[in-house]
Structures are given as C-alpha cells and as structure tokens.
Design a protein around this nucleic acid. Structure first.
Lengths: 221, 221
DNA sequence: ACCTGAACACCGTTCAAGT
DNA sequence: ACCTGAACACCGTTCAAGT
C-alpha cells in the first residue's frame, strides 16, 4: 500500500458535510438526516463528522443557512420596498415548499444566522419604506414571525402529506370534511369556512397576509 | 394476595396520561417527555400507554390541545372584535411563555384540534369585524400564522435559554453583541437595530404585530 | 490535525404473554 | 379489555486508538 494513497476522493470538510446533509434532507426528509447515514454517504465514520460540526442542531442550522443564503442571493431588483419585501417573502415561501425541513430548522434557530439574513433583507426595505426608527424592529419582527409561522405550518403539512401518501387534494378534502362534521354550536366559523379551505391557495393566502402587514405598516401611527 | 386488589390507585386513562405528560413537559422540558418516564410516573409499563394513545405525536398534540382549550376557556368579555382578538392572542402568548413546549407542538399540528380551536375563536371575531366572506379565511390564516410564528420562536428561545443558563438579559446582550460585530457592508440594518433589540419587549412587539395585521384588515379592500 | 469505529446511554414502538 | 415488560431497531454523542 502506498503511504500517500488518499483515503477518499475529497477531503472531509464542513461544506461537504453540509451539502450531503441537504441532499439527505431533501431526498429522505427530516428523519433521514442521521449521523450514520451521513457517514455512509461520505464514506467515513460517524465520529469524524463531529470534528467539523458541533452537533446535530449545528448541522441543521448550517444546512438551513446555506439554503436561505442561496434563496436571498437573487439580485435585488430595483423596485418599491414593498415589492422587494413581497419578492423576498415569496422566495422564502417557495424555498420552504421545495425543502420543507427548512421550516422546522428555522423554527429552532432563534436569532441565528439564517434568521439574521432574513432580518437584514427585510429590515433594509422596512427602513426604505420610511417606518419610524422606533418602530422598525417591531415591524421587521412581525414580518419575520409571520413568514416563520407559515413556514412551520407548511413544513408540518408537507411532513403529514408525505406520511399520508402525498395527495394534497385528498388531504384538503379530508380536513374540510372533518371541519364540516364539527359541532354546529361550538364551531360555526370553522364549519362555514370548510368549503373555502378546501380550495384555498397557500401561496396566495401567504401573500395576502404579507400585504395585510404591509398595509398596516404603511399607515401613519 | 386478594384477587381484587387494584393494581394502582386510579385506572389508567387517556386523561391521566395527558395530565402526566403536561406535568412532565412543564417540569423537565420537551426532552423530558419519554414513554419510560411517563410509565414510571404512572406506575405502569411503557407499552400500556399505547393502549390509550396512538403514538408520541398524538400524545403531544393532545397535551397541547388540553392547554389551548384551557387558555381559550376564559369567558368572552363583551368587547369590540379587535379587542377580543388581542386578548385571545395575548392569552396564547402568555400560555406559550409559561409552557414553551406548546410552541413546538403547535408547529407540528397543522389544522389539528388545537389549531382549530384557535381558528374558531379568531374566525368569529374576524367575521364580527365585517371582513368580506371571501377574505375571511385569509385574514384568520394570517393571524394564526403570525401567532404560531411567534410561538415557535419563543419556544425555541426558551429552549436555548434553558440550555444556556436562563438569564434572558445576558442572552439578549450576547445576541446584540454578535449583531454589532457583523460586517458593516453586508449587515447595516442588523447592526443598527442591535441596541433596540437588546431592550425590546417580546410581548409588546407581539401585540404590535397583531395590531399591524388588524389595521391592515380594517382597511377597505 | 484529522479520522476510525466500537461503545454508551438512551429513544419510540411492538408484541407475546398475562390478568 | 387492559396491562406487563422484555425485545427490536434504531438514535446522538463520546472517546481511546490510530494515521
């Protein structure tokens, strides 16, 4: 055996670990990211990964951060601040739809790097909108919380969808049917909204919520 | 041994299991809820619990639902719809502050019973506000997503706070310091907001976000 | 400095067997 | 019908030992 035979094609780096994590998360879902699976994918031992990564939480946050960075990388179009905010929000919505695990990862990373990226992007636009300095943090925080809330729900929906076989139409119909069967006295609103729910468009409703907040922000006072 | 000696004081019921789960979650945090710990608490075997509960997810959702139900149980004060919405939202905020694990449980229970309780309460008020039927679902959905987003972040904050020793002041200061140290070109907004963040009031900002959405909803069209 | 892989201390869930 | 508890198939994480 030559002594300088490399043990593998590429050296094990934090970046390679993160990339492998993303592809594992995308292909096998949240429960598919395992130190053992990762080690096999990278042709190494489970313990080796700990040299580059503190723990699983660190790994998830890093994977999430990499995708959020990519999502926000798109060139900033010259547009009204409100439109940029809409674009950023929709970009996140689409990214989470494509990689549902980001939703759960974001929920567990309070004020960490992926969130800060978003905060910065939204904040610059909120400032450009002319929101008073004293209200800027609260305004950005509201946008952020809303986006994260939708993210989390969408991630959970996707998870359940995968478990139940994936047919979105069927799941919506099932939920709508359950709502229609609720007690008429206790749940009048939910019952009445069931048909609307069945045909609702997550993306359109998401944007409607963003617009609600933006409209509230644009008002004086 | 008499044959009719009861094996334990009380029979094992779904309710007792849920109560024990809540107290375990409150005292030991999210990772403290374990079938083994639960079994010991209830003087039974781990497997016995499965007779009354489908799985851990079912258990978490049920525990969450019980607390949400209690939170929404408070008598509806005769007040303007906006004020009732504020009160409901604040009630949820405080409940999640007291039991951070609700935040994570809610995030994983899309359109399940705890969420439906909230949906109903908010929906009745949105309708009372006079929002057009076609916009009611989107409006409630926005409020709901926002509340869940804040919930999730708060739950994660509490989790990290517990891990790091619990001093909120110190954690805020630490995050603010990290933000101030960010690259000046890439993160101008985050840097500028750091002092504000250090002294921000989660509850006040939460309410400010609710008001933003309510204001947006009250506008025509 | 970086990697190996066995070992540790857990998990949720199942299921034959009991009452 | 309800409960027992051992067993199964996993986890994340650590660490002595290697290169």
């Amino acid at each position: 055996m030559a002594k300088n035979t490399p043990r593998r094609e590429q050296a094990l780096t934090r970046e390679r670990i993160i990339e492998a994590s993303i592809s594992l998360l995308d292909s096998r879902g949240e429960s598919g990211l395992t130190f053992r699976a990762l080690a096999e994918e990278l042709s190494t031992g489970a313990g080796a990964i700990y040299w580059h990564v503190a723990n699983k939480n660190d790994l998830m946050t890093a994977a999430c951060d990499a995708l959020v960075a990519r999502t926000l990388e798109v060139p900033v179009i010259e547009a009204a601040p409100q439109d940029v905010i809409r674009a950023v929000a929709l970009g996140m919505f689409d990214a989470i739809n494509a990689h549902p695990w980001i939703g759960s990862a974001l929920a567990r990373a309070p004020w960490q790097s992926p969130i800060v990226r978003l905060l910065e992007r939204l904040g610059q636009q909120v400032r450009a909108m002319g929101v008073a300095p004293a209200g800027q943090f609260a305004a950005v925080s509201a946008l952020l919380s809303y986006i994260l809330g939708v993210s989390g729900q969408n991630a959970a929906n996707a998870q359940i969808g995968k478990e139940l076989g994936g047919d979105r139409e069927a799941i919506l119909a099932q939920v709508a049917a359950a709502w229609s069967a609720l007690d008429a006295d206790a749940y009048p609103f939910t019952r009445s909204i069931a048909p609307q729910f069945r045909e609702h468009d997550d993306r359109a409703d998401f944007l409607a919520g963003i617009d609600l907040i933006l409209r509230g922000m644009a008002l004086p006072g």
